[in-house]
Design a protein around this nucleic acid. Structure first.
Lengths: 109, 109
DNA sequence: CGCGGTAGTGCGCAATGCGCAATAGTGTCC
DNA sequence: GGACACTATTGCGCATTGCGCACTACCGCG
């Protein structure tokens, strides 16, 4: 099974959710998602999503040098991001409910 | 909001679900989905999905001329399709649960 | 010094939903 | 009879987005 297509349009939401309470850098966000059950999510996808969300104005960004490795690019939420999270979550729940409805009733009118 | 990305990888599932109990032709499948709440699904997407599923061996197909309009291309499930439906549904539920989990706990360990 | 883990960027690909145009049959309204 | 709307399908090209892979780079360990 290829779950990668299921991620489309939802990875944004997952990344925002994971950054809601605490800023994080790419590699860390990746770990949070994997730890949250999204085992197969690719690193490039997460980095790309973070960049995309940042470009779109949903995230703030600052670089922090690290003593024990390469620099880390932290991302944090701003108001637009928080709003986006709420809306995306709403859209997700509505969509999931719609699909569940279709799965339940099949072709029935 | 753009829900089109949420559809990715799930339209297959929805189409299979809608064909589970009763054969249907493209335009009709489209109506079933719209009626089921997927208001914004595009016609080309449904036709494309049906062709794709047929090519992949999950559906049977037969053409029926109609008295009141152009011919209709009916699609029906075969065993592979039914199996695929079950698996996709399982994958969907697992995925939805995973995402819900991430949404609930945010960055929390 | 090489290797593995950490951390990020860039490139090109593949999948898939969508808009739009074209074709085509039927019925309706003027 | 002609314009239009609804039904029904196909094909084309586009945009989005997740992914694999390669590359850079920093650190500590053996």
């Amino acid at each position: 099974m290829d779950t990668s297509q299921l991620l489309k349009g939802v990875l944004d939401l997952a990344v925002l959710a994971v950054l809601k309470d605490e800023d994080g850098y790419g590699y860390d966000v990746l770990r949070r998602l994997r730890h949250g059950g999204m085992d197969e999510v690719g690193d490039a996808s997460v980095y790309g999503t973070l960049r995309r969300l940042y470009r779109a104005g949903y995230l703030t960004s600052y670089v922090v040098p690290s003593d024990e490795g390469p620099h880390r690019k932290y991302y944090g939420m701003n108001d637009a991001g928080r709003e986006r999270l709420v809306e995306s979550e709403k859209a997700w729940r509505a969509f999931a409910e719609t699909l569940d409805g279709i799965l339940r009733k099949g072709a029935a009118a």
